[in-house]
Design a protein around this nucleic acid. Structure first.
Lengths: 202, 202, 202, 202
DNA sequence: GATGAATGAGAATTCATTCAT
DNA sequence: TATGAATGAATTCTCATTCAT
């Protein structure tokens, strides 16, 4: 007998993506079995293959979609400070990055920790998108440096440091914890700005 | 850990640890098979069990050893600034943390990304060590805050941010890259100190 | 066979038979998947079942059709030498068999090598048709033996040998190769006739 | 718990080869599952992989071993007629080929019908051995033709015909059937020799 | 200590087939 | 008739682990 009633094609695919996101986040991509995934979705293992072509392909799909969304939301967020100075733009970047990494913490975590499991082509694709995103921050730092506002030392290294610091929130931030998202953003904005504009060492 | 006394026993165990470190770093713990490991060491799979009791046990051994080493070296490094002020101690912390994370980048990476694969007991053990290490930094921040030197907002969150930023070096730092380790330490020291002592936002 | 009446039904069924013939010849029946078959035809897998009832059923249909055609053409070919002597009839048999096995090499190949995959009933059906065909040759040999023309030793065994020899052409004959079909027929006629009428061993 | 008592390594491998030969002959390579094979041997499926590296590899091993044996026995058989004339050598060839194809009918059958399932490299390897074997017969025919004894028409085509005829015995010969192996050899020797030395067509 | 052969569970993937739309 | 999504059993192969030798 075929087909349980309900759950049409697109709906099933959406369920697979959702379940995949959850399970990969919780157990890691290698550790997640398609058995688990199918069970979570409520279909048979073989039925997965009506929607995905490969386990790796699901991973790529999730990460790629996340990267696309990242750029989409980034552009929207930065549009609000278009034409403004490097300080305002850096503050906007911090606010956006922290927000996105809190709201999409699972996508973000997977997108950073499971790259190893991508096929070479897919790997290259994602890595180049990540570089392009880093570049966005580096550009802001360069502008700030050019304007005599920031002292970065090295814009690339400063950017890596800032990104690492901000991205960390997806690890420890708890929605109803001691601090609100806004407080964290305020703190980290000060810390980042202070780091680039503050006093130099001994 | 199943360290067995014998003729070339310790030597073999050391080879297993070395190979395990390499393979787990390269492929991830789940993705590394004991067959690969045995091949890398140059023995048969079955022989591994004369030295380890479990695959998971090897992972725990590697991480635990790394944590012990971390504390050992931390204590040695901080002894040099014993009795000095928070700023000197924070600079010493930055220097130590960056150095360790560059030199032991594989241990550090595994110790952060493969915790998921530990048994509950082992997991708790390592996580509490990590918390204890974080605590060391938080203490410095607290002292700086108490002394009116630092404005952290929230010492825990500030510490997480600093740790994330500094730990990032194990991902991107290349020994013969554009910047030396010392330059990176100088930059990040300024950035961290500036972040805590610099101007506040709008 | 599940030939369904309809608009482009027969055309689709013909396409399925053609594609099936090709794929089974190339990969073997077990190795051919219905997915491959559907793709070759240009429809979806499920749609195949509007035309066939079973994978095995398609195989039987192909082989059975081939056997029917074999007898049809055999009768037509032998009608031309009706009433003539065993030698002429044997030459006609050789010419017919070689021709058919060159022209229909895929059907012939499948009809010999994929019998194993037929259901018991279908298997019996085809095997009995094959025996009936062999019988046609044995009859000719018997007549030649009775007429004092041939010395077969054992008509069955002689027939098996002749059939094997002639059937072999479907394996190695290439349409534009060194020899024409007519040359092969001439050679093999001589060889077969010589074998039955030639000198006896030591 | 590991290992059932008995059945050491080489013995197990021999059992696998024997069971593989039987099952592939009976069901075909594609249709034989490793489940079946393991069950026939009396071990678990996974244990097969202590002895073979791949299902295809087992097939290659069986066929390659058969080809090696074929040449070994061929050389031994032909040594007995070394230095004799083409007629004696052809009779020896017929006797050898028929005998081998009766005694090793399963190896022979597999070696002809399952080539499709070999990897390209393995396929090439076996096909070239088969060509080399055909060459042995062609050489005899060429010598007979040169000596004015045989009229082949085309030595290659004649050889293919002879090989097909003789090889056929592995399909229909039954050890305790109507004819003994010796009778079949005698008949086919006459038929082959007659075919090459007998009268030419109309 | 090392080896090689075993286990049994589990991996991803493919298969023929069904059927509501 | 065709489609797409489902089933459930089967496929080859890999895994960590055990243990007699």
């Amino acid at each position: 007998m075929a087909r349980t009633i309900g759950s049409h094609g697109p709906r099933t695919m959406e369920a697979i993506r959702k379940a995949g996101l959850k399970l990969i986040y919780e157990h890691g991509f290698e550790a997640m079995s398609l058995r688990q995934l199918a069970a979570e979705v409520g279909i048979q293992v073989g039925s997965l293959y009506n929607h995905i072509s490969t386990k790796e392909d699901l991973l790529y799909d999730l990460i790629r979609t996340h990267m696309d969304e990242l750029f989409l939301q980034f552009d929207a967020a930065m549009a609000a400070v278009d034409g403004q100075g490097p300080e305002e733009r850096l503050r906007a970047f911090v606010a956006f990055h922290v927000t996105y990494h809190i709201v999409r913490k699972r996508e973000v975590f997977i997108g950073a920790s499971e790259l190893r499991s991508l096929e070479p082509n897919h790997y290259e694709d994602i890595v180049s998108l990540r570089r392009r995103y880093e570049r966005r921050l580096i550009d802001i730092l360069d502008q700030g440096e050019a304007a005599g506002l920031f002292r970065c030392g090295d814009a690339h290294v400063a950017a890596y440091g800032i990104l690492s610091m901000l991205t960390g929130v997806c690890t420890w931030f708890r929605p109803h914890g001691r601090l609100t998202k806004e407080q964290v953003i305020a703190m980290y904005s000060d810390q980042v700005l202070g780091g680039l504009m503050g006093p130099r060492g001994p």
